[in-house]
Design a binder for these strands. Structure first.
Length: 460
DNA sequence: ATAGGGTTAG
């Protein structure tokens, strides 16, 4: 048997790139030549650092990622590009770790890498997305004379204004941008137009789209049109929405899955299933692959028609096509089943989520909880309540009302006490809820029981 | 992979 050949730094990069499992990729990185005892340390390429850091960051394996970053900081053969750190900053942002993002930002110079407006922008975006508006302001002030804001900086700020519902500020930002000689780009217009549409200012949004093309000479892009198409569909102007789709095609802009999904979703909501099907076909023929969001729109359409068979079929089709259903796919079905009183099936699917590799989110818990209450399955609902609290979620106030109201009507004192104890521990009993309990007790002449109840719930 | 669009509850 010939001796195994050592893999080259270049080969390691391509192996890392192909390795989907971040744990295996890390093993490979740490021990690229397990067969060979070499006295010389492996000469990692900058690319291989980039790939492994990105993989670990995406998988939220921050401890391991930081270890690799420390190793990278000891390398003297090259200076890493700023983009690696920008990515690390946004990985922390996605994991809601803004302090870690700021820490990375501070450490960039220790990698002998110069910070530019790019890493400033990354931090700015993370701070906004983590709801750290005050820190964002501080950071902007500090930015002052170090870097010049670019289009991306303004786009982040315009987005922050739009998402906070301050459209006036967003327009001001847009004006300031132009006054400072920064040219707005497609992202700027997509952001503003989406903000306008979300606030029902369709006419303004349509005008801005026209100005974008004629006045600002920015090429049309799909993300500028999607919010317009969505809003037109919402108000029932489907033919105008299709008009915008035609306009994109006239401009030779390739339609992507978001545009198709918006149309499919609208058609299903208006009960035009046949047309939704044709759009899906057109999508496939034009070489645009339906993704999870597209299939979710289909599932929603079927659930609205109470065709759960068809909805489950889409789920199977997704798995077959390698398009993984996400929590929304399941939430839609669970919600649909609940609406139809099929709470057993809804609960079965809910309990099957871990096996299907999907973690229930807050919407999921609230949906199944309210669904069980609607059909008077208070025992099941109450046990879900505790599970919710354990996971750090809480039911909506409407859901709480449904549970307590239902238990009062049934005068199910044992379960009511249990529910109120859980709710009380989570500090979720308001005047409205006490009102329900007390008026029930008055009707049933059980005031003494209520005072007992109050004692149980109020005493910490 | 520094920034933007499309799917779920209430």
């Amino acid at each position: 048997m010939s001796a195994p050949k050592a893999i080259s730094p270049h080969r390691l990069s391509s192996l890392l790139r192909r390795q989907k499992d971040p744990n295996l990729a890390l093993q490979l990185f740490q021990n690229p030549n397990p067969q060979i005892q070499s006295p010389k340390p492996f000469r990692y390429s900058l690319l291989s650092y980039d790939i492994i850091i990105t993989k670990l960051g995406r998988a939220k394996m921050f401890h391991q990622m930081e270890q690799i970053l420390r190793q990278l900081s000891r390398e003297t053969r090259f200076v890493p590009g700023e983009i690696i750190f920008c990515n690390v900053i946004s990985f922390y942002g996605r994991a809601r770790l803004p302090h870690k993002a700021l820490q990375m930002f501070d450490q960039i110079p220790s990698f002998r890498c110069d910070r530019t407006v790019k890493s400033y922008n990354s931090v700015l975006d993370v701070l906004f997305k983590c709801g750290e508006v005050e820190k964002m302001r501080e950071f902007l002030v500090g930015l002052g004379n170090h870097v010049t804001p670019d289009a991306c900086t303004y786009n982040i700020l315009i987005n922050a204004c739009c998402k906070s519902g301050c459209l006036h500020d967003a327009w001001n930002m847009f004006d300031e941008m132009r006054k400072r000689g920064v040219r707005p780009n497609g992202v700027t217009f997509a952001t503003l137009i989406s903000g306008l549409c979300a606030n029902y200012r369709l006419e303004e949004a349509m005008r801005l789209k026209e100005d974008m093309i004629r006045l600002y000479r920015v090429e049309p892009e799909a993300p500028v049109y999607t919010p317009l198409i969505k809003e037109l569909c919402r108000i029932g102007e489907l033919s105008l929405a299709f008009g915008l789709k035609d306009e994109l095609e006239r401009y030779k802009v390739k339609l992507d899955s978001a545009v198709y999904t918006t149309l499919i979703s609208a058609l299903s909501k208006f009960g035009r299933k046949g047309e939704a099907y044709w759009i899906l076909e057109e999508m496939k023929v034009s070489g645009c692959k339906p993704d999870t969001v597209t299939y979710n729109a289909m599932i929603n359409g079927f659930c609205m028609e109470k065709d759960f068979e068809a909805a489950y079929k889409i789920l199977d089709q997704m798995v077959k096509e390698g398009c993984k259903p996400n929590i929304i796919s399941y939430n839609v079905i669970i919600g649909g089943l609940c609406n139809e009183g099929k709470w057993v099936e809804a609960n079965d699917l809910f309990e099957d989520l871990p096996r299907r590799g999907c973690k229930p989110d807050i919407v999921c818990y609230r949906t199944i909880f309210a669904g069980l209450c609607d059909w008077k399955r208070f025992k099941e609902a109450t046990s879900i309540l505790d599970e919710m609290f354990f996971k750090g979620y809480a039911p909506s106030s409407a859901g709480i009302h449904k549970l307590v109201d239902g238990l009062c009507q049934e005068a199910n004192m044992a379960l009511l006490l249990k529910a109120l104890t859980s709710l009380g521990n989570a500090n979720l009993i308001n005047v409205d809820i006490w009102g329900l309990v007390i008026s029930m007790a008055c009707k049933k002449e059980m005031l003494s029981n209520v005072s007992e109840l109050v004692d149980t719930v109020m005493v910490p």
